[in-house]
Design a protein around this nucleic acid. Structure first.
Lengths: 145, 145
DNA sequence: GACGCGTATATGTATAAGACATATAGCTGA
DNA sequence: TCAGCTATATGTCTTATACATATACGCGTC
């Protein structure tokens, strides 16, 4: 693991999200504003990795710090997301040998990963707008004053 | 159906979300920013009902209109949410007799439902803030320029 | 008058994210 | 030794949404 399966996958759908996540129904249909397609831990993870490579455990804390505690990733889910991202060539990892303490795996973002992060930004902003609109609707329906 | 099972349930946990939805882990822990606990269709539905009573089918279109197409509820899910809201006393419904066309069920919001909507507003604003923070983090990690 | 279409309500099922529990293994200090 | 922290990982549950489909009514049309 950690080998550049990156290159093999990179040219599949060059300027797209390549896989499920982040992009929605494929045909551009977007329903809802929150749950469903596209998580929030994943972009946070990519953002943390774009800042600096790290281990899963540290990344969790980095995310919590970067987001001022707004995103507190579940430890179990974090490693699953990292493995999935690696399968898709968005991150690479290598075991760190000859260290004290438990075995650690160092994750780094790939150029594909950076592209995915940029893509995420667009989607997050879209969602932010949707959530804005919904909040406005709820506010005016809730307190007409 | 449509009877005020409202009153029976109302005094359970007066100033709370009373049930699962909307409020998070119960102990105040909130993780993540989007998916998981609390949908987005439900507050939209309550907001639509707070504006005016209506049938499920119409409410779907009202929501789409109110949110400028940002929330397009799934028809199947909509009726499930309405039934769940009714079970919990947040809405009431009655079949409309003697009309042409297919049978219609008129839904109205209860005072508990209005309270829930007000509660939703708080949570949506919290989430909006969380999403704001996350988006900012992703933006600065994505394009440091 | 059979058929398609829009209205209206409803169920079944698949996918995905997240929450929580738990397993493992190594190190550190009491 | 034993508790507790670091670190990675799997199992499982709940929930939200997406999509398919079933039903029934009324209306227009061919």
């Amino acid at each position: 693991m950690g080998e550049p399966q990156d290159t093999a996958r990179a040219q599949k759908q060059p300027d797209d999200c390549r896989r499920r996540r982040c992009c929605e129904s494929g045909d551009g249909t977007r329903r809802g504003v929150g749950a469903g397609k596209g998580s929030f831990v994943e972009p946070a993870l990519l953002a943390a990795l774009a800042t600096s490579a790290g281990h899963g455990y540290d990344l969790a804390r980095a995310i919590e710090e970067m987001t001022q505690g707004e995103v507190v990733p579940d430890a179990g889910g974090l490693y699953r997301i990292l493995r999935r991202l690696e399968e898709d060539g968005f991150v690479i990892s290598e075991w760190q040998e000859g260290e004290s303490g438990p075995q650690r795996r160092l994750y780094s973002i790939t150029s594909d990963g950076r592209a995915l992060l940029a893509h995420w930004l667009v989607h997050l902003e879209e969602r932010r707008h949707a959530l804005d609109v919904l909040t406005g609707v709820v506010r005016s329906a809730s307190g007409p004053a």
